[in-house]
Simulated scan of single mutants.
Amino acid sequence: MMRLARLVWLLLLAALFGAALFFLRPIEPPVPPDSPLHGQIERIVVEKAARRLTVWQDGKVVRNWPIALGFAPEGDKVRQGDGKTPEGTFRIDRRNDRSAFHLSLGLDYPQPADRARAKAGGYSPGGDIMIHGQPNSVPEDMKVRGDWTAGCIALTNAQIRELWQVARLGTVVEVRP
């Protein structure tokens, strides 16, 4: 009986370890940037289909990073819980260094048109759309695979720390399909 219990316990541990390896993956070593970002950036462009976030400063691209999106990323966000990342032009309207994810930069979604559409349809448009790092429970050298957020835009922790230093309130964020 003890042998069977130990075998079941070992199989359970192996399954948990396998699940962790499936959902988390090591971060690829970053390519050293030309130089650290300083000052303030002009804008951020998110291309959902390409899963890419581009940072613009002084009229030129200074960073391109891969991203994760909402768990159902195709199409524009319509309502709370749909797993979509909203499309359009937004501004960073808040910063949170104590979120459930490593740093977060909030976008001014929903906008008036989103609220009006939701009110007419009798549902919530959702909110709390952020650019953020990995969940605080994920080790620093790992990242969650695939599109996993509730509608946010996720970077690695190192990338969000760099963006955090140069993205000010009011920075324009364009989210394209």
Rank of each mutant, 00 (worst) to 15 (best):
M1K: 03
L7N: 01
A19L: 15
R25N: 03
P26E: 14
P26N: 06
P26T: 08
I27T: 07
E28T: 07
E28C: 01
P32S: 03
P36Y: 08
L37K: 14
I41L: 10
I41P: 02
A49R: 13
R52F: 03
L53H: 11
Q57C: 09
Q57K: 09
V61S: 04
V62A: 03
R63L: 02
P66V: 06
I67G: 04
A68Y: 12
L69F: 14
L69C: 12
V78N: 02
R79D: 06
R79M: 12
G81E: 00
G83C: 03
T85W: 08
E87K: 10
E87H: 04
T89K: 10
F90L: 06
I92G: 00
I92P: 04
I92M: 06
R98W: 05
A100Q: 05
L105I: 05
G106C: 11
G106F: 11
G106S: 14
L107Y: 08
L107F: 07
D108T: 13
P110M: 10
Q111T: 11
P112E: 05
D114K: 13
R115Q: 13
A120Y: 01
Y123C: 02
Y123S: 08
S124V: 00
G126R: 10
D128M: 10
P135W: 08
S137T: 12
R145M: 10
R145H: 03
G146P: 05
L155P: 11
L155I: 07
N157M: 00
Q165P: 00
R168H: 13
T171K: 08
E174D: 11
R176M: 03
P177F: 09
